[in-house]
């Protein structure tokens, strides 16, 4: 299982802050997971439309080509605006 988290404007657009997802076969990278989620259509297109979407795997910033493993925590969020 993957734990997937959404934050800020993306969380609001999707109407949820987290979900558990069984790692589908053939889904080896963050980019493949991203495409899989965005393909749900409707509100999920926000994943593809968010400008400069940021990704973290196991709480470390990651790129679309980062590998995924069962049990990973994957977070999608817009660019950060703290401070």
């Amino acid at each position: 299982m993957l734990k997937i988290l959404y934050f800020a404007g993306l969380r609001e657009a999707l109407g949820q802050s987290s979900e558990q997802l069984a790692l589908p076969g053939g889904m080896g990278t963050v980019g493949q997971l991203h495409a899989h989620l965005a393909a749900r259509g409707g509100a999920w297109e926000a994943l593809a439309k968010t400008k400069n979407l940021r990704i973290a795997v196991n709480q470390q910033m990651a790129a679309m080509d980062a590998p995924l493993n069962d049990g990973d925590e994957v977070a999608f969020f817009p660019p950060v605006t703290g401070g």
């Binding site: 800020a8 400069n52 703290g82």
Partner: peptide, 18 residues
């Protein structure tokens, strides 16, 4: 650092752009 600001303005709430 993963922080995000949402402002309440007279026109409603808005997420701050980076």
């Amino acid at each position: 650092a993963p922080f995000w600001k949402k402002e309440e303005t007279p026109e409603g709430g808005r997420w701050v752009d980076a």
